[in-house]
Design a protein around this nucleic acid. Structure first.
Lengths: 187, 187
DNA sequence: GAGTTCGTTCAATCCGTATTGAACATATTG
DNA sequence: CAATATGTTCAATACGGATTGAACGAACTC
């Protein structure tokens, strides 16, 4: 009988759920809760939603791979939330799906290489934003270029200076971003 | 009469306002608007509110120092918003107050040293967050330390590994933060 | 000192976005 | 194939934080 006993009908509703997380000492469990709560606060404060952080922390601090149902129960969130948060985490490589023989639900375990996770997330969140501002800067430079022989008014000269400063900063920021920050975080 | 003409009663409502910003070519003005809008989008997306970015961009792209009233009119925001955003910008050194002889309103001009501005803002926004997580990590380590001679259960050993990994990452992040990122941005 | 002009504050409100959950799609079982 | 179990989607909603604006205080004017 053993492992396959989970299919016996007499257990009723969700009798198999109790085995997913072994009982922890209450103090250890309290710390675990605090980590989860804190992770939620962090992700919320950087604007990617509370459940993302909570979900990751829950999986990270679970010895066994966790299912969506585990998340809905542990964090008191909806099925939809659990699904979306896990998919986002997967996209950043923060969790990976593991197959457990004989189980139908999807199980997820945490990646503990934080450097890679944050690198991917930052690339995703910030990387694309830099591009969108470029067109505006280029339009401005085109405008300046175009009117180079035109009569000089102070208004125009002022804008020219400001735009050049922006370009200068933008290029330096790009350089720092590309060469330093990401490389440092990775290894 | 000239400059003091602003006190003459016949001008009524806000006749003096028209002189604050010289008329720009409509194309230049359009670019200016796009910069302001874009700045608002950026600051909003990083979670510090839209008006902060808009206010800074407006001041940055104005040849003359700007007043709170200028902001409320140009950005269509309330007096309160203008006041709060400028105070925040001042705290980060993004704008500074300048005194204009014979004027009662406060005037602000933009700092164009973006490196310093961002450095200060990041220190303010992120710096303090790192501290708050520390206590939790320290509590966890204290717990581990305390029970060092106790009977080993796998649950506990697992948590111990995870907490150690967190600590390791946390220290490295702190190091990168302190030594690299801020220094790079500054000069 | 009464009357203005400005800047600040903070409770009330508004708005955007995170979250929900019912409906749907897909896979699995007997 | 019907029945069940699971994951996903997205329109509706709920919630939190941004924004407002009335009330206040401070500084100035006559």
């Amino acid at each position: 009988m053993g492992r396959s006993g989970r299919f016996s009908a007499d257990l009723g509703t969700d009798g198999d759920e109790v085995c997913r997380t072994l009982a922890m000492s209450s103090e250890l469990e309290a710390l675990r809760q605090r980590f989860i709560e804190r992770a939620g606060q962090i992700t919320q404060s950087i604007g990617i939603g509370r459940v993302i952080g909570q979900s990751f922390a829950h999986i990270y601090f679970s010895p066994e791979p966790q299912t969506l149902d585990d998340l809905t129960q542990a964090l008191q969130i909806s099925k939809g939330s659990a699904s979306m948060s896990v998919r986002q985490l997967e996209q950043w490589g923060a969790v990976r799906q593991v197959w457990i023989k004989g189980e139908r639900k999807d199980h997820y375990e945490a990646n503990d290489d934080f450097g890679r996770i944050i690198r991917r997330a930052l690339l995703d969140l910030i990387g694309r934003r830099m591009e969108t501002t470029d067109t505006l800067l280029e339009d401005s430079e085109a405008y300046i270029e175009r009117g180079n022989g035109a009569p000089r008014d102070p208004e125009r000269a002022f804008m020219e200076r400001r735009i050049k400063k922006m370009r200068h900063f933008r290029d330096r920021a790009q350089h720092i971003w590309d060469s330093s920050v990401l490389r440092l975080l990775l290894k």
